[in-house]
Nucleic acid binder design. Structure first.
Lengths: 350, 350
DNA sequence: CAACGACTGGCAAACGTTTGCCAAAATTTG
DNA sequence: CAAATTTTGGCAAACGTTTGCCAGTCGTTG
């Protein structure tokens, strides 16, 4: 007969008995070392180590109201853009003694809200990455528990986001310098704050530089969405395409290639995010890069600070980190063609 | 003065008082509906809903010994190969009412073991993806708690892994059919079980088909590792390169391109995993594909079953799912060159 | 040397559930 | 209609921590 799988875990009482002290002393020796005499403390710690004692997170959480767990919820776990964010958050969570749980809202605001509500009772706070939630909902969550926004800004809510204004300016100036006069912006989901920032930044910079830019969309912010969007862009006849993100840019790239349109000779393409793959697609993608791993770390630090503040009473003003972005120029952008791009080889040109 | 952030959560006792029943009745009405009269049950449920009651996971865990939390630990969160696994696991965890916590061991067995020990007290079981742990350690963990292996098989431990034997056979036959006579295998970390399977499968299939294949490495299973490995492969002069995974294959591809070696005209390259990017790198990568999202779902199902079994006493034989793999032929493989590949353009040919 | 304060360690009461046990009530059975 | 059975709901004891309070012990100070 098989032995029971989970050998009954060693509890604080076991350690107390073995060390000849009260449970409370064990607790203090381990979590509040200054509160107990050095010799008792060391004895207790030794016994605890010998017995392989691990405090029960559940019991601790029940006592303290803290779970030492942070939640990260994202609209699309599989977007490589988020890998860096996840890794950064995971590392910093571990470094600060926290556990990271992860949730995927699959681009759906309703699902995101459900996810937050589902996770809330078990975590100390939330990292909301590229949240699709309306401002009001975010404010509501923020009022009820510690929240840090990533890739989004909402007044009074702590956040870290990449500098889109500077970034879009770089993009527009780059295109203008290459002689482009008409561009297209392939929009992502309207719920995307970053997307709205991008469009705002691009239109404003474009106006300043005399670049004409039209917006198409919205499209699903994926390679598939980019395929569709690319098709639409071809029909428009602009010489430059700015996609909501790299996934879409890559989709558009694929579509161009399939249609025999040469990038960048006929049309230039720019993306956002500098995801894995942007540097080795064909041609490599010109794109706006930001340091997502760093963002993940900072966001966790901010969140941990918020959680700590929550127990004390001093709330200082919410932080708003705006991280620098950098345009990485690769092969997908080039001088504007002098003649308009040729008609696509296949498909109905209507 | 700001109101307290966390409005004191509504507890089971609040619901009980409001509904005019005992706390135990509330508990049963919500978690064990058959145990209570239909009219009381509905009344309680209504009151609970009205008050917005959410059971405290900590308290529940303390009472039941179950946390409704599953851990997924991986050697590299940022490898797009794992995105599918993560998504599949997350979806199925949610579907079965579980929370998924995620850990990154960063290719380090020691870190992996630490991670498991750190997480263990707070989770019901583990999903170990592409574990770098020695068999003995895995058996040890498996004896102490529910464990499901993904991309690894260890006798007596439940697992789901892709069919490497069939997969490697497909690769070798593909290369042989193209006329290749000599190939190189660029090995990943020796701790990788999948890597060992791959080498075993390739050598055995190669022997059968009269293909000569040498092994180089180990290399870090990343694009950077692939760059190095590609360099070494060039020196060898084989006409076909099989990389431990797509990351390395893409690195090798980059290296070839940088060195002016044409793929597939001069050398063919094959990878494993069919990750994001494999279809749009230049040339697109021939690679062995498996359904990682499906694997993630199955693994969670198996784990949940294990957790349930643990409370009852019937343990049935550990499951071992071997999932089919499929060779996706793209542009990186082609007929073997009749002449040997040209000398690399730059660098010391010694 | 008395009084005082700083240190230490124990007691016991939380924290919010679940669940075994029991008794009352309702239902079925003979 | 009494007895047997099932259904229902409450009581109270866990589960494993943390922490406020208290009392002893020591060392210090005037």
């Amino acid at each position: 007969m098989p032995s029971p799988r989970r050998p009954h875990a060693v509890t604080i009482t076991d350690v107390a008995r073995e060390a000849g002290v009260a449970a409370s002393t064990v607790s203090r020796a381990l979590t509040n070392p200054d509160r107990v005499n050095v010799v008792t403390r060391e004895h207790v710690q030794q016994v605890a180590a010998r017995l392989g004692y691990r405090a029960s997170p559940a019991a601790r959480a029940l006592g303290t109201g803290r779970t030492a767990t942070l939640a990260l919820v994202l609209p699309d776990i599989t977007n490589p853009y988020f890998s860096g964010l996840i890794r950064g958050a995971e590392r910093q969570a571990e470094a600060t003694g926290h556990i990271l749980v992860i949730g995927d809202s699959e681009e759906n605001a309703r699902a995101e809200a459900r996810m937050v509500e589902r996770l809330a009772p078990g975590v100390d706070g939330f990292l909301l990455g590229s949240s699709r939630l309306p401002d009001a909902r975010i404010l509501q969550f923020d009022a009820a528990m510690p929240v840090v926004l990533v890739n989004r800004r909402v007044p009074t809510v702590t956040s870290v986001s990449p500098d889109q204004q500077g970034g879009t300016r770089q993009i527009v100036e780059h295109l203008v310098a290459l002689g482009h006069r008409r561009a297209i912006f392939l929009a992502g989901p309207p719920e995307s704050w970053l997307g709205r920032q991008r469009w705002a930044g691009i239109s404003s910079a474009a106006k300043k530089h005399g670049l004409k830019v039209r917006r198409l969309g919205p499209y699903h912010p994926s390679v598939e969405g980019g395929l569709l969007a690319g098709e639409a862009a071809l029909a428009d006849g602009a010489t430059a395409v700015i996609a909501h993100n790299d996934l879409m840019a890559i989709g558009a790239l694929k579509r161009m290639k399939a249609r025999g349109v040469s990038v960048p000779a006929d049309v230039s393409i720019v993306g956002f995010d500098d995801i894995f793959g942007a540097d080795f697609c064909d041609p490599p993608l010109t794109t706006l890069s930001d340091r997502t791993e760093q963002a993940g770390r900072s966001a966790v630090d901010l969140l941990v600070a918020l959680v700590r503040e929550q127990s004390r009473l001093d709330h200082d003003a919410p932080a708003d980190i705006v991280a620098p972005t950098q345009l990485v120029v690769r092969g997908s952008t080039g001088p504007a063609p002098t003649a308009p791009p040729p008609d696509p080889k296949e498909g109905d040109p209507s």
